[in-house]
Design a protein around this nucleic acid. Structure first.
Lengths: 259, 259
DNA sequence: GTCATTTTTTGACTTTTCGTCATTATAGGC
DNA sequence: GCCTATAATGACGAAAAGTCAAAAAATGAC
C-alpha cells in the first residue's frame, strides 16, 4: 500500500544526481526496509534479527551492516520513512474541502488511519522514542528523524495559521502556534498510542468506540475555542466524510481486513 | 526517595502471612528492582544486563532468574511498581484542598513531578507498552501491570465523579467517565512522553515553558467545560500551590538537582 | 579489451548476553 | 543430628549482534 521513500514529485526533497550504482544502493535500501517491516509484522520486534534480514533479502550480513549501523538503526530508519508517509497524508488532509476545523479533523483522521493501516510503522515511531532504541542508533539517524518530525510540524502549522487567518481561532497572548501544535500532537500521540497498545486495559476496552479519538480531539479543539465548536457542528459526520472521500481507499481496505 | 513496594498501610493490599524465608525473598525482590533501576539510570537500557544485575547485587544468575522470567520481565515489574508509586501520588493529589478542577490540576502536577523525579520509572512504563518488551514478558506480569493501571483509573474516576457531584462538570449523554479519563490520560501521557523524549524536537524546544503541560491540561479541561474555566481562574497559581504544598519535598528536590 | 585501482560484498569469526539446569548448599521440622 | 524440601550456584549451550580480512565486482585510464 505504501512505498518506502517513494520519490513523490514534491519540492521539499532534493534528489541529487546519482550514478547507476548509487541508485541501486538506494533501491536496495528501500527493499531492505520493506523486508524488515514484513519480518517485524510477522515475527515481532524480537523475531526480527539482522541474520533474518540478511537471509530473507538474499544479501550478506556485511552488506546489511553497510546500510544500517545496528538493528536499532533499522527501526529508526523505518520510523523516518513512516513520518514521511505521514507527512504525505497530512498534506492530503490539508486539501480537504471544508472549514479550518474540518481540516484539522481530517488531519487527525489521517493520523488515526495511518496508525491502523500501518501498525508496525506506528510502533516503530513509538519505539524510536524509547531510550532502548535511541541509545543504539547513530546520531545522524536520530537527527534525520527529528528533521522528518519537524516537517510534520511545519505542515501542522499551516492548519493553525489558516484558522487564525479566517478568525476561527484566536491566538492567546501567552500561547504560540507551537503550543497549539503540541497540544494536538500530544492528544493524538497519546490517544493512538494508548488505543493501539493498552488494548488489554479495562478502561480502554470499555470505551470501544471507533470515534474515541474524535472525542478527545473535539475536547481539545473546543478547549482552544476553535470555531465552530463541537456543539454547533457534527464532527462525527465530518470525520466520516473525510474517511469516505480523501481516504476512501485506505478506509475500504481497513474495513475489508477488519481492523 | 521512593521505595519500591513499600507496604503502605492501605486497605487495598492484602499481606498474606509469610515465613521468614519468604520475607527475605520479598525483601530481595525490592532490592533487585532498586539495583536494576540504578543500572538503567546510569548505563541505559542496553547497559542493563542480567549478568550485571547478578554481579552488582551479589546474587547468582540463577537466583535472578528465580525472581524474573526475563530481562524484559524486570522492566515490566519496575513499571508495575512505578504505577503503584504513581497511585500513591494520585491519592495525595486527591487530598489537595480545593475545587474539583483544582484537584485534577493537582493530579496532573503529580504525574508531571513523577515523570521528572523518576524518569527511569516513567521510561519503564512507556517502554513496557512497547511490543519489544511485551513480546517477552510473562502474561501474568502483563496482567499485573494492567491491574495496576486499572487501580490508577479507579482513583482518577473519583476526581470526575466528585466534579459531577458538585456540578462543576456535566457528563454529556454520549460520554462516559471512562472517556473523560481517557482524554486526560491521553493528553498527560502524550505531553509527558513527548516532553521527556522528544527534547531534540525543534517544536518542543521552542516551547520550553515549565507550564506547557498545564496549558494542554487547561485546554482539555476547558474543552470538557469543567468549571471554573481557565479564563476565570488562575490555574498556574494552583499548579504552583500544589507544587509548594503537598509536593513540596519533591519540588524542592527537583529544583535542587536542577531538573 | 585489459589491467590497475577503488569500491562493494561476503561469510566465517568473535563477542556478548540471554536463559537453562544439574549440582550443591541451606533452612527448618522431627 | 538427620532428613527432606526448597533455594542458590555458575558452568554451559544457544542465539544473535557486530567485525573484518579476503574475495569479487565495478570503474576508468590507456
Amino acid at each position: 500500500m505504501f512505498k518506502f521513500g517513494s520519490e513523490i514529485n514534491n519540492d521539499d526533497e532534493v534528489i541529487p544526481k546519482r550514478s547507476k550504482k548509487q541508485m541501486a544502493i538506494v533501491e536496495r535500501h528501500r527493499e531492505l526496509l520493506l523486508i524488515a517491516k514484513d519480518i517485524i509484522s510477522v515475527e515481532g520486534f524480537h523475531g526480527f534479527t539482522m541474520d533474518k534480514l540478511a537471509s530473507t533479502s538474499g544479501y550478506s550480513k556485511g552488506t546489511i551492516y553497510n546500510h544500517f549501523a545496528s538493528k536499532e538503526d533499522v527501526i529508526v530508519t523505518i520510523s523516518c520513512e513512516a513520518l514521511k508517509t505521514l507527512a504525505q497524508m497530512y498534506k492530503k488532509a490539508y486539501g480537504f474541502e471544508g472549514g479550518s476545523r474540518d481540516k484539522v479533523v481530517a488531519l487527525h483522521v489521517a493520523y488515526r488511519i495511518f496508525s491502523r493501516l500501518e501498525p508496525v510503522l506506528f510502533m516503530c515511531v513509538l519505539t524510536s522514542k524509547t531510550p532502548w532504541v535511541v541509545e543504539k542508533s547513530t546520531s545522524e539517524n536520530i537527527e534525520k528523524q527529528n528533521l522528518a518530525e519537524e516537517k510534520l510540524v511545519e505542515i501542522a502549522d499551516k492548519f493553525i495559521l489558516d484558522a487564525i487567518d479566517v478568525e476561527d481561532l484566536t491566538l492567546a497572548a501567552t500561547a504560540s502556534t507551537d503550543a497549539l501544535i503540541f497540544a494536538n500532537w500530544a492528544v493524538a500521540f497519546g490517544s493512538n498510542a494508548l488505543l493501539n497498545n493498552a488494548t488489554n486495559s479495562q478502561c480502554i476496552q470499555r470505551i470501544e468506540d471507533p470515534y474515541s479519538v474524535l472525542y478527545n480531539v473535539n475536547i481539545v479543539l473546543d478547549g482552544m475555542n476553535w470555531q465552530p465548536l463541537s456543539s454547533r457542528r457534527d464532527y462525527k459526520k465530518v470525520w466520516r466524510e473525510v474517511e469516505q472521500t480523501i481516504f476512501a481507499d485506505e478506509s475500504a481496505y481497513l474495513a475489508q481486513i477488519g481492523r
